[in-house]
Amino acid sequence: MKQVMTWLVVAVIAGSLLLCGAGLEFGVPAYHDMDDYMIAHGQEETGGNNIVTDVVFDYRGFDTLGEATVLFTAVLGIGLVLRTLAKEDEEYEYE
């Protein structure tokens, strides 16, 4: 029963993915007005030749700020978790 439920859930997910992807056509993006604007005006507005870097650091700067914060927080969490383990290790070695 559990197996049947698992595969049913997987089939529903795969079907919905297929439904979402059915309308897409490779090579012809549906909405591209914003990207056309960035390609046309990116050089004069930000001064960089690499439009992807212009988008990352200028047009979508808040996005990058959040991303840097997520990375910083993850490193903080890893440091906290693994420092507990390292302390246990020291007691383990002294026993």
């Binding site: 993006p29 591209h32 914003m34 990207d35 960035m38 390609i39 990116g42 439009i51 992807v52 212009d54 988008v55 990352v56 979508r60 996005d63 990058t64 991303e67 997520v70 990375l71 927080t73 993850a74 490193v75």
Partner: peptide, 19 residues
């Protein structure tokens, strides 16, 4: 040129995936 915004979002996604 291809669309730059999705490439920037992919860059974000890769770094968050690593974290």
């Amino acid at each position: 040129m291809v669309l730059p915004t999705v490439q920037a979002m992919t860059l974000t996604n890769i770094v968050i995936g690593i974290a």
